[in-house]
Design a protein around this nucleic acid. Structure first.
Length: 492
RNA sequence: CGGGGUGUAGCGUAGCCCGGUUAUCGCGCCACGUUUGGGACGUGGAGGCCGCAGGUUCGAAUCCUGCCACCCCGACCA
């Protein structure tokens, strides 16, 4: 392993790929486009899952699990949804292998074992879930249904990148059913708020909440809300989406209920999801040329203690001090690891923990034993200070909050300084090619204009921010009248 | 899926154009010793179906064909 990462300025995407692998989060597998998430990366994902799961349950949702496979006839029922995902589906056509008579020791697909009906490996689960909901709903008394599932899905992507776009990925998908349009809309917004809250307060990633334009909308949705984040290279990343599905799926799957007035009506629906792509957002928001930088909320180990010693007696003394520190920290809910490996020298440990983004390092050496101190090294600021053992646990506990806040504020000021208002198309192109980031510009509201801008610049409308103020203006491309600005950016 | 590139030990690589001893070097790995406040040093050692499958040839890492994977640029996408 070479010692240093490629720097971000040298080659951003190489930096990203190296970082994911060297920090031991994930690696490519023997399966095209599919990754192995390694224990360290998975531990971070589990932190995200735990918090999101808590938030979903707090807002009244329950977990369930639906099948990996979707019969083709169900998959095609909601036309737009089917069309949207058709190009990237894995399909099961057979159910048995046999010894290959022409090729000793090899297997082949048994031609006799062809399925009557092909099974689609879910790229998303609306179809199988709405087919199921049909049997669960007769009356308004059966509503709402507020269900989430943690699952894997498969989308046969042409170009894959670890965490950002893999052929198989892990996610959660919520699927809710409601008696009224208003209630379904409320749910859509509620979840988008949950996502924004989670991104900002837990992951320290500032996001813009907004609505997608028609062409960026989820296939089968009437409206798509989203949270959009900005990466350090000035590209936007869609971090989560919450869809208002109207009655599209209820109609496609004939899910009706009897309302209070005794009349039949189709159910209103939402669906919403975030995926392991959030790992990519995490990495590209906070990390630096030394490696991963983790907000304390997401760190598998918030603190690591590294002993520096010349002999066994010293190590023993340091171990005693470390044990005391650990029990104090754990009592305050801070996770801590004592890196007492004898196989690595301190410098190597420092470098490794920096690469892996541990928020705070405590080093204890002979000088500290003498003085009753430890050395604290912050990953976010790369600063070091010597502090007394007195009140250490309180200091560390407070530092966790401070590091979390510092990371958020740093990302926020980067993001805010990369939202540029432009009023001409020349400016638009200049900003896009130079400073990058979000561009706030007037748009005439037509898909044609949106597509034209995409063709000309590769920038897409990331969203129409929900807190947009009304402002008369002229479309940056066509000069047609516009009532508000929208956010453009190149995106992942 | 279209264009370009790359595949040699765990990682990074030389050799390939112009076929011919035992496939080069660095890191990492193992053993022993000395070390330990920012990626240690010395000595010794192990590790290779040269991406996979065919073909040409007396002989292939090297030439030819097919396939696979990865990277970059497009199209697609969370």
């Amino acid at each position: 392993m070479s010692k240093n990462l490629t720097s971000r300025s040298e080659d951003y995407s190489k930096w990203y790929n190296e970082l994911v692998v060297k920090a031991d989060m994930a690696e490519n597998s023997a399966v095209r486009g599919c990754m192995v998430i390694k224990p360290y990366g998975y531990a971070i994902w589990e932190k995200m899952q735990a918090e999101l799961d808590r938030m979903f349950k707090e807002t009244g949702h329950q977990n369930a699990y639906f099948p990996l496979f979707v019969p083709k006839s169900l998959f095609e029922a909601e036309e737009k949804n089917a069309e949207g995902f058709a190009k990237e589906c894995a399909i099961v056509t057979h159910y048995r292998l046999q010894n290959d008579p022409d090729n000793e020791g090899k297997l082949r697909v048994d031609p006799e074992a062809k399925l009557e009906e092909e099974l689609i490996v879910r790229p998303t689960s609306e179809a199988i879930i709405w087919n199921t909901y049909k049997g669960w709903i007769q009356s308004y008394r059966d509503l709402p249904i507020l269900v989430n599932q943690w699952a894997n899905v498969v989308r046969w992507e042409m170009r894959t990148r670890l965490f950002l776009r893999t052929a198989e990925f892990l996610w959660q998908e919520g699927h809710t059913a409601h008696a009224t349009k208003e209630e379904a809309w409320k749910e859509t917004k509620l979840i988008n708020n949950v996502y924004a809250n989670f991104a900002e307060n837990f992951m320290a990633i500032p996001v813009v909440q907004g609505l997608k334009t028609e062409s960026e909308r989820f296939a089968g949705a009437e409206e798509t809300m989203c949270i959009e984040a900005l990466m350090q290279d000035g590209k936007a990343l869609q971090a989560g989406t919450s869809h208002f599905l109207g009655q599209n799926f209820a109609k496609a799957f004939d899910v009706k209920f009897t309302n209070k007035e005794g009349k039949q009506d189709h159910v209103w629906a939402t669906s919403w999801g975030v995926s392991t792509r959030l790992m990519g957002a995490l990495i590209m928001t906070h990390s630096d040329d030394k490696g991963l930088v983790l907000p304390p909320n997401l760190a598998p180990n918030q603190v690591v203690i590294v002993p520096i010693y010349r002999n066994d007696e010293q190590l023993e003394e340091i171990t005693n001090v470390a044990n005391n520190i650990m029990s104090d920290l754990r009592a305050k809910g801070v996770s801590v690891k004592f890196d007492n490996r004898t196989t690595h020298r301190p410098g190597a440990k420092f470098a490794q923990h920096e690469l892996q983004g541990v928020p705070l390092r405590i080093a204890i050496g002979p000088k500290d034993l003498e003085n009753g101190t430890v050395e604290l090294a912050r990953r976010d600021t790369l600063t070091k200070e010597i502090v007394s053992l007195d009140n250490l646990a309180d200091i560390v506990k407070n530092l966790m909050t401070e590091i979390q806040d510092t990371l958020f504020n740093k990302a926020l000021s980067f993001r805010d300084s990369h939202i540029t208002e432009v009023d001409t198309f020349d400016e638009f192109k200049d900003v896009l090619e130079g400073k990058a980031g979000f561009i706030s510009a007037h748009w005439d509201g037509s898909s044609e204009t949106e597509n034209k801008i995409k063709e000309l610049t590769k920038a897409t409308i990331r969203c129409i921010p929900i807190d947009n103020k009304a402002e008369e203006g002229k479309c940056v491309l066509t000069g047609n009248p516009s009532k508000q600005r929208v956010l453009f950016a190149k995106a992942y």
